[in-house]
Amino acid sequence: MRSYLLRRLIGMIVVIFLVLTIAFVLVRLAPGDPASLMLGPDASPEEVAALRVRLGLDQPIIAQFGSFLANALRGDLGQSLFFNQPVTTVLASRAEPTIVLALFSLLVALVIATPIGIWAAYRRGSVLDQTSITTAMLAASVPSFLTGLVFQRYLATDLGWFPASGYGGAGAGFTERMRHLILPAITLGITNSALILRFTRASMLDILGEDYVRTARAKGMTERRVVLRHALKNAGIPIITVVGLTFALLVSGAVVTERVFNLPGMGNLVVNAVLRRDYPVIQGTLIVVAALYVLVNLITDLLYLAVDKRVKY
């Protein structure tokens, strides 16, 4: 157990080191001099030279990489060129809508997908099963911006049930802000429910074929109890895995969804950073998101231990 943890931690450190390296190299791969690229064609040579010094571009590449790593480990991801603030400050101020949107939509996805997935596995091959699989595939095929725009047009603009866009404006209260996240969360939740539904169904199918389920039935246990007590409990592990896997989907989906609903989150920030060529913000977002991904997957692995006592590493 302890050696497993140690191995996982070392693996995680290596991957995070590589993530930092990739993020560093990516920005350096941009054709042309980063400083003149950032300042645009109208900048004078003096301004470009000054920025080169400020960014440390006059140093040898290894030294630049070294100070980049050292800064990143201290939590310094550089300065945003557009906001003229530390990247971490900019990211932190945009974190709330993105984090709440991700959690909220995960909840929506779980509420939709888990019961249907269990029911579909239980009635394998039935019309309901076929329909649910096809619907899940459809949900994964419709681009989330289309779902979002349909909701925005019909549920928000026409029916007025939800706010159509934004985050309630400056000084909006908590309830108001959350109200603005309902449609985005449903949009993103529907897209992500597809994968969770298929995983839940597949793992329930495995479990329903196990000996202990047959034994429980043979003992005369009610079907309801068999499914809820025995099967569902053991389906927990694969479901946790898939929740870890959907993290990447959630982030990618959040970028698009925030754009549709004009939410001031990290997704919208990174798209604007791309349009403004604000490389430090792009780099910082990549690092933070990838590090979170690695962390989430470590946590899901550790959760196995908590859910299933048989899992030994």
Binding site: G11, A30, L286
Partner: peptide
């Protein structure tokens, strides 16, 4: 393998977005 792990830690749209921004 570690490089593959690291590449897969970046969500698809986000990585593609950054690459397109750069190139």
């Amino acid at each position: 393998s570690r490089l593959i792990d690291a590449m897969m830690a970046f969500p698809d749209i986000l990585l593609a977005l950054s690459l397109v921004a750069i190139f």
